[in-house]
Amino acid sequence: MPTPRSVRNRFVDAPGSVGERLRTARWERFRRCFPRIESMRVVDLGGTASMWLRAPLRPKHVHLINLEPHPAELPDWITAENADVTDPAVRAGLGEYDLVFSNSTIEHVGGHSQRQRFVTAVEELAPHHWIQTPYRYFPVEPHFLAPGFQFLPLAARARLVRHWPLTHSRPGTAEEGLNAVLNIELLTRAEMRYLFPRSVLTSERVAGLTKSLIAVRTQA
């Protein structure tokens, strides 16, 4: 009998999975938006080295900004630091890049004010950007693979996440469960348009339904 982890892997991570096919299509769209990506210096807000090492393209340089630890050994075209880009002091010390890239991060930064600080960083760090986030009204919550999860009351989500079999890392306590769900605030189309008024907002679709939103700026 398949385990919950194997079921999640089948849908999200495994070769040929729905998640893998979506990631491949997303990279193809990204390359069409930025055909000179191999010559661009990219700052990735919230990204990981493993994602870029698996990517079917390679920018000239990628600098990762993340609160989570990075691998000790990285190729010479990737650098990384642990930092909070919504902190103005951190942002001021980063310099300038050609492109800001961010994949499924803005929904984790913590409230509207923090999202505005995140957008300020995006605007200041580079003339171009690609900011992707899961769409709130897609019927399956993408972090927990739970249908309708994001529409439940907070207390119900905090309880469910401790028992739902497809959760990536199941919380062990009630406090951890509450923390897990409070750390995710899925965005709507209206919110993304408000945050990125000068960007083109595109949709990533599954079975005709919008799964993710991507704010793209290809012109300075």
Rank of each mutant, 00 (worst) to 15 (best):
F196N: 08
R29W: 03
A89K: 12
I214P: 05
E204D: 08
R170Q: 15
V119P: 08
E175C: 00
R157A: 06
E176P: 01
V85P: 06
A80E: 07
A92F: 04
F196L: 05
R41V: 09
R8C: 10
P69L: 13
T173Q: 06
V140D: 10
L53G: 05
V85E: 08
T79Q: 10
Q116N: 00
D98K: 02
I184G: 02
D13P: 01
S113D: 15
K60N: 04
R10T: 13
V119T: 10
P171Y: 10
R115A: 06
S50V: 12
E28M: 07
G172L: 12
W130E: 09
T48Q: 14
R157T: 03
L213M: 01
H70S: 13
G208H: 11
P147T: 05
N103W: 14
G19D: 06
R170D: 03
G19F: 02
D87V: 00
L201V: 13
A121W: 02
Y137V: 00
R189S: 09
R157W: 02
H143K: 01
P4G: 10
A72C: 01
V43Q: 01
G177D: 10
H163C: 10
L64E: 07
W130I: 06
L160N: 05
L67K: 13
K60Y: 09
E68M: 14
Q150Y: 05
D84L: 04
A83P: 07
L53I: 05
K211I: 01
L74A: 09
E28I: 02
T105N: 08
M40D: 04
V7D: 00
V7E: 04
G148V: 11
G47M: 03
P134E: 12
P165R: 10
V181I: 14
V42R: 07
I37K: 08
E191C: 00
P71G: 06
G93Y: 12
L152W: 12
A126I: 09
P75T: 11
A126W: 07
V216L: 13
L152D: 04
K211V: 00
R198T: 14
T188G: 07
G93P: 04
W52M: 14
P59W: 03
L152T: 05
A25R: 15
S50P: 00
